[in-house]
Simulated scan of single mutants.
Amino acid sequence: MFVLTVDQRKSRTAADLVEAAMTALNRDPGRPLRLAFDRTAGDEMQAATESAATAVGIGLELAASGHWSVGIGVGGVREPLPSNTRAAAGEAFERARAAVTAAKTAPGNIAVSGASPLAGQAEAVLQLVAAVTRKRSKLSAEAGLLISEGLTQQEAASRLGISQQAVSSRLHSGLWHECRRAAEVGVVLLEGADA
């Protein structure tokens, strides 16, 4: 099982983003959650999933935004699961707590904790992807998000009012393809850490 504990960064000086983030994440049918995101403290939320791809996708999205510190805990949970995350317990929840604390000062503000050495390897990959994602230019991010939505480069170019070559250049400078492949490696490593 994978538990995400997510803490809003600079919450004392910024608007509360937790409610809007929880609503958006809990409504996404493409990301199966065993326990939906729930506020566990003032500026913190937590969820559980059996899908490494879901944990990586959500973790990278939130960490790369710069607004969140993300901890991913890998391990067992006490079954049966309760109806909300605040009442849940087990190794994955304990490890997620340790990971979110580490994420506050980690590269890319993402950390992974699990018993297997593969958890540490997954953490290294995810930190790299999150750090690269944060350094992208606005133009590169704009093109990459359209490609991530399933548009072709030609369709993205048409939507942005630029050439297909310009879209390709933006994807190249933002290391979009490399980051996508690295995130896939992170998923495989997390799956191995939970085996």
Rank of each mutant, 00 (worst) to 15 (best):
S148T: 10
W176S: 08
L175E: 09
G59W: 06
V74Y: 00
E50W: 03
S173R: 15
E79K: 10
R86N: 11
L33Y: 01
S148M: 10
T101A: 15
L62V: 02
R86I: 12
P117N: 02
A182C: 09
V3A: 14
G120S: 07
A130M: 05
P29C: 09
L62H: 00
S116G: 03
A183K: 01
L35T: 02
S158T: 14
V112H: 00
T49M: 10
W68K: 01
R9V: 13
T101N: 11
A63C: 08
T152N: 11
A141G: 14
M22L: 14
A193Q: 02
A14D: 15
T5I: 13
T13Q: 12
L81R: 04
A87E: 15
A130D: 05
R34Y: 10
R27E: 14
Q153E: 07
R86L: 14
T54S: 04
L35P: 02
A15F: 12
A98S: 10
D28L: 14
K104C: 04
L35A: 05
C179Q: 03
P107E: 04
A88H: 05
R31N: 12
F37L: 07
Q46H: 03
A41W: 09
V188F: 08
L190W: 01
T105C: 06
H177Y: 11
M22R: 14
A124L: 15
I162S: 02
G71A: 04
A143L: 13
K138N: 13
D38R: 13
A131T: 13
P80C: 11
K104D: 13
R78I: 15
